[in-house]
Design a protein around this nucleic acid. Structure first.
Length: 434
DNA sequence: GCTCGAGAGTGGGGATTGGAG
DNA sequence: CTCCAATCCCCACTCTCGAGC
């Protein structure tokens, strides 16, 4: 089969033209025996493929004089080269720019730029691709994620639940299989160098140990400092010491690969090898998190949550006592945390990111937060359009912003985590912080 | 017929890494 | 050396289709 850009582009345009999910799945089925298109999808949609180049670096060389021709390289040769050399150097950017410039039509140039920067939007992702082309075609990693308590509380009335602390660290999933141990982040990226934790887990039974990494002094820190300090340790190159693993769930590797455990939460805790107190007294770097409460009485929650917040902790987790682990966002586990709000003044507007849905409309508000600029998103499509086209009507207006906690960066600047637009406060002329 | 769950695609702050200059 | 682009941690939210009631 011949590798032709125009053929790939035509198929991609079919995906973009059909907005229905069934239509996209039918297209995937139709192309199931097209090895070239499948390879293309692997390059542009596999979450573990990164190339170290985005629009800014490539544009630096687009339309410049390219000394040499592109030889007989095709698009897959370029992808392979980038996979082996995701360095983001001028050299690789130049290779990509030269390849793009060798194509005549603007449509093909745009197609190639979107492809190499992984900005190709077909309305499908690894889940849908794997559903049609088979599990494992694209790398997919799914851990259990919690839903919000407020949205789901009606589902737990009368059910027995277990409350634990919600830790604000880095998610880590250890796979222990005989003498081999590996660790993955929430998105399936390898975390290497956690030697202290790995040595301890190697002494335990096989299985998947799901939990949170926290810096050694997390008890002394408040709010977002815990996450910031933890990430400082876990994202450094080389061996990562001074980090502790707080395990909150355990299941077999087969169950994890199946996407669901057989046992309920309390049963899984019971068989969790870290539940052995003798062993855990010897361990310094791995432990099982403590249960704060078991019951079916929701009224205990507000006081417990208030106490956590007073201590600068993130909040609480609520597990349904007899519900299985599920490798997806699940209502078997709920998170409780309190969001704060402030009324802040709009001082600017920014368009959306290049090659994205909002590139020609409002991407975010810029507001003043205690003298520092803060970007605010979470805006409906309608309001984006209205504000973008009538900016003078909105400059200086006060908006209500929901956020998690105030944060401070290394330069001392103040900001907040997860700022989200809630609405206009036309009744207010001045900002206020609660 | 309607509701709501799940997937895809937006956006935020903050940190490290590594190349450019 | 400093600066900046890219990546990846932590996320919250909007929109849409279509399964399921």
């Amino acid at each position: 089969m011949e590798l032709r850009i125009d053929k790939l582009l035509a198929i991609c345009n079919e995906f973009k033209a059909d907005t229905t999910k069934t239509g996209k799945k039918a297209l995937l089925k139709r192309e199931a025996n097209n090895p070239i298109f499948k390879q293309y999808i692997k390059y542009v949609l596999d979450p573990l493929n990164t190339y170290g180049l985005q629009e800014k670096k490539i544009k630096k060389f687009l339309g410049t004089n390219h000394s040499k021709g592109i030889g007989n390289k095709d698009i897959f040769d370029i992808f392979e080269y980038l996979l082996q050399n995701p360095t983001g150097t001028d050299h690789t950017a130049h290779i990509v720019a030269r390849f793009i410039d060798a194509h005549q039509s603007e449509e093909e140039k745009r197609f190639l730029l979107e492809s190499f920067t992984k900005k190709m939007k077909l309305g499908i992702s690894e889940k849908t691709v794997n559903e049609v082309w088979g599990k494992g075609f694209l790398n997919e990693f799914n851990v259990m994620l919690a839903k919000k308590f407020e949205d789901e509380s009606h589902k737990i009335k009368g059910r027995k639940f277990v409350i634990t602390e919600k830790y604000d660290g880095q998610r880590a999933v250890f796979f222990k299989n005989s003498n081999i141990i590996s660790c993955y982040s929430r998105d399936g990226k390898r975390i290497t160098g956690l030697v202290e934790i790995e040595q301890e887990l190697l002494r335990l039974a096989d299985g998947v140990y799901d939990g949170e990494l926290l810096c050694w002094n997390h008890e002394e820190l408040r709010d977002r400092e815990v996450l910031q300090q933890t990430l400082k340790l876990t994202r450094k190159d080389g061996n990562k010491t001074g980090v502790r693993f707080f395990c909150f769930d355990y299941l077999s590797i087969d169950e994890f690969n199946d996407g669901k455990s057989k046992l309920g939460y309390l049963e899984r805790r019971e068989i969790n090898p870290l539940n052995n107190k003798v062993i855990c007294n010897e361990f310094k770097h791995a432990c099982l998190i403590e249960i704060l409460h078991i019951g079916n009485d929701l009224e205990v929650i507000p006081d417990m949550l208030a106490e956590m917040e007073e201590r600068g902790k993130e909040g609480l987790m609520l597990n349904i006592a007899d519900a299985p682990y599920e490798c997806k966002r699940s209502d078997n586990i709920l998170k409780l945390k309190t969001m704060l709000t402030a009324d802040l003044r709009i001082i600017g507007f920014e368009r959306g990111k290049p090659m994205g849905k909002f590139e020609n409309t409002l991407g975010k508000f810029i507001v003043d937060y205690k003298g520092y600029p803060l970007g605010v998103s979470g805006i409906s499509d309608k309001i984006r359009e209205e504000v973008w086209n009538n900016q003078s009507n909105y400059l200086g207006a006060i908006i209500e912003v929901s956020y998690f906690r105030e944060s401070q960066n290394e330069k001392g600047g103040l900001s907040v985590s997860f700022p989200q637009f809630k609405g206009f406060r036309w009744d207010k002329q001045e900002p206020s912080y609660n």
